[in-house]
Amino acid sequence: MRRNSREVGAVEQAKSLQSSRFMREFGILFVFAGVLGALMLLSPGAFARPANLMNIIKQASVNGILAMGMMFVIISGGIDLSVGSIVALTGVVAASFAHPGEYPFLVPVVLALGLGALIGLLNGVGVAYGNIPPFIVTLGMMTIVRGLALIVSKGSPVFGVTAAFENIAGAFVLEVVPLLVVYFLVVTGASAFLLNKTVFGRRVYAVGGNEVSARFSGIDVQRIRLAVYTISGLLAGLAGLVLASRTVSGNPTAGQSYELDAIAAVIIGGVSMSGGSGKWYGTVIGALLIAVIGNGLDILNVSSHYQLVIKGAIIIFAVLLDMKGKRK
């Protein structure tokens, strides 16, 4: 029996889409494997040591946490430029409340997370109810929050935190896995669950894919917007807390251009800038790739100035690959 050409057409298209999808979702894996392989060849002794690999994951963690929040925002069709500044402000505030003998351990933790979420919520209000383009709202917020970090800290880093605070990022689980990495894993797991297994996640994709059809299908688009910016802010607060703990201080100039690294991780991971598509594991690979490149180039003694050039080139290359995959 001959197959209907319509079905054949559909099957064929599905096939070509599958292969392009494969490239889109896993193309970056080849790049990642290639970079890993190259570094192992170039520096077999230093790079591939387990301690160094753990180090890479540690280096990826703060950016990874930010990238997870950024992923929600970008899939919904937005962008969040304020996360780097939120890292600074929440770090400064957390450190200020973590001086020995002043406040209970939980106070700086709750403040950092709450403040991050609150700033995210304000971003969301501006985007969802003010109808201001996300780029503008979060650009403004980036500047305001950076200013607040400098005001709160009077322009200089806040030192002198409790040992418990230092342990937030510094302690180990089972004596080998740093807590920092555990946060990254937990955030990744929670994000993956939220995005793939819940009605909320489905709606985030729907809003980013076609806002009008989402609204016509009864989805409260404004609430989804509010939620994704709040998530991004909350995770930025967590990143700020963790970074302050790791550096044993709250620095008002911390987190500069972190938003760009987070965006880069998401984009390298194959999430479309126009929203509606992308997968969590892509973002994880994106964050790891950025850390691997930084770490590998450090080991190879490449100056940080050259590192910037190489990192930028890789971002462009990754997006090029992504677009190639999308073209049929």
């Binding site: 994709y205 076609n210 059809s213 016509f216």
Partner: peptide, 12 residues
């Protein structure tokens, strides 16, 4: 414009 999310699957 308003019926479908063309970036989504049939199921979604």
């Amino acid at each position: 414009g308003s019926g479908l999310n063309l970036k989504g699957t049939v199921q979604e």
